[in-house]
Amino acid sequence: MAAAAAAGAGPEMVRGQVFDVGPRYTNLSYIGEGAYGMVCSAYDNVNKVRVAIKKISPFEHQTYCQRTLREIKILLRFRHENIIGINDIIRAPTIEQMKDVYIVQDLMETDLYKLLKTQHLSNDHICYFLYQILRGLKYIHSANVLHRDLKPSNLLLNTTCDLKICDFGLARVADPDHDHTGFLTEYVATRWYRAPEIMLNSKGYTKSIDIWSVGCILAEMLSNRPIFPGKHYLDQLNHILGILGSPSQEDLNCIINLKARNYLLSLPHKNKVPWNRLFPNADSKALDLLDKMLTFNPHKRIEVEQALAHPYLEQYYDPSDEPIAEAPFKFDMELDDLPKEKLKELIFEETARFQPGYRS
């Protein structure tokens, strides 16, 4: 834990890192770190609560700039109880001085990944967590956004079992017609939660990839272990087919990539493993919904509104309290091709509203 900075004593240090967030945020305490930044909790002297502050230093890398800009653009436009918001952003007053960006968010005690390492969940908890994931996802999908990296560590939890989806750095506007060349190379989302079509096709992607990830998360809540822990690309596919069985001819016809289709045709026939054999203690309604989410063919996979209306979630289902976005989200430009200098300018502009004396 960093010592509390005395008023006016300059930035606090946390594990050798400068955290320049005073005077409003003090009493910093280390939480963890990701690929390009550290997260601390801090005391907000204005709202009198502890908050989470993520320090991001992305400006050396085009990919990190892209992810940072995506996350900020999306989260500043989203407003939903099951999606983490941005409360404040701290950065230098000029673009030349801006080396880091500090993002202030609600402090959540833990995440689903940490929880599943230590606790076996009751059916009631599984049901409530799944409902909140789908409630947040309904809003995301209504904005025409794909999260693309749903996994237990991106689901934040607090002691009252509130759940918030975080990390929109890989999110995209849904565009089933656009052929994202190089899709697989830039697709760094965790393999275990990846839909089979991501490994088999490169053309376009749809909201059904997020539903697949939610199915993987439900299976993990039922058993405290990942359902498809593939060691590499082909191993991942083999794990999936080992449980779902061989795809039907109709399902194979959806695979545009001939090499991928021929690979699947070359494999020995596998039978589907019954879900109640894998999860003998699970609620039968939970397994019915799991089956509809972990469907090989993305066109037959359940959609988020149908999933919310499934009998497993009937005690929570309330369409009048499951809000959607006001308007579909649009990125003005494809960020993939922009140089990091341009992305830095866009991050600077996007964060201006939090600067003292800002006038829109």
Rank of each mutant, 00 (worst) to 15 (best):
L343D: 06
L218E: 04
A286Y: 01
H299R: 09
A5Q: 11
K270A: 07
H80I: 02
H299I: 07
A92W: 03
S213G: 01
H178N: 13
V101Q: 06
N27Y: 15
N154Y: 14
C40K: 05
P323F: 01
E81I: 03
N45K: 15
K340F: 02
L107N: 02
N262D: 01
H299P: 02
L184A: 03
A3F: 01
L258N: 09
L252F: 03
H141L: 15
N297P: 07
T185M: 07
T63K: 15
T181S: 15
Q236W: 03
R135I: 01
E12R: 11
A143V: 13
R91P: 05
L155Q: 15
G204S: 10
L252P: 12
A9K: 05
Q17F: 01
A195K: 04
I53F: 14
T206I: 11
E334Y: 12
G242H: 11
E60M: 14
L76H: 02
I56D: 15
P328V: 03
S266V: 05
M333C: 06
H125S: 02
Y205Q: 06
V51W: 04
F59A: 14
K55M: 06
A219P: 12
S266L: 08
R15Q: 10
I243N: 13
I324E: 00
P280V: 05
T94Y: 12
H120L: 15
R225M: 04
F329Y: 14
L290Y: 03
F329D: 03
K203P: 11
E60T: 12
N144R: 04
A52T: 11
M293V: 00
L294D: 10
S202V: 10
E81M: 01
T63G: 13
P339Q: 15
I56N: 15
L267I: 08
I227H: 06
S246P: 00
K54Y: 02
T110V: 10
Y312K: 07
G242R: 04
P356T: 12
R261L: 14
K292F: 07
L289H: 01
R148D: 03
E349C: 01
L200M: 13
P247H: 14
L134W: 07
N271E: 06
D288L: 06
L150S: 12
L157P: 11
P298M: 03
V214I: 08
L264Y: 04
I347Q: 11
L264E: 00
S208D: 05
Y25L: 06
K138W: 02
E33M: 00
F348V: 12
D20V: 14
V188M: 09
K203D: 10
N238P: 03
D235N: 13
L278H: 08
Q17I: 07
N82G: 08
I211K: 13
K73N: 14
H125G: 08
N201Q: 03
I165Q: 05
E334K: 13
F129P: 09
Q249A: 08
Y30M: 01
E250K: 09
E334L: 09
Y30E: 01
G85L: 06
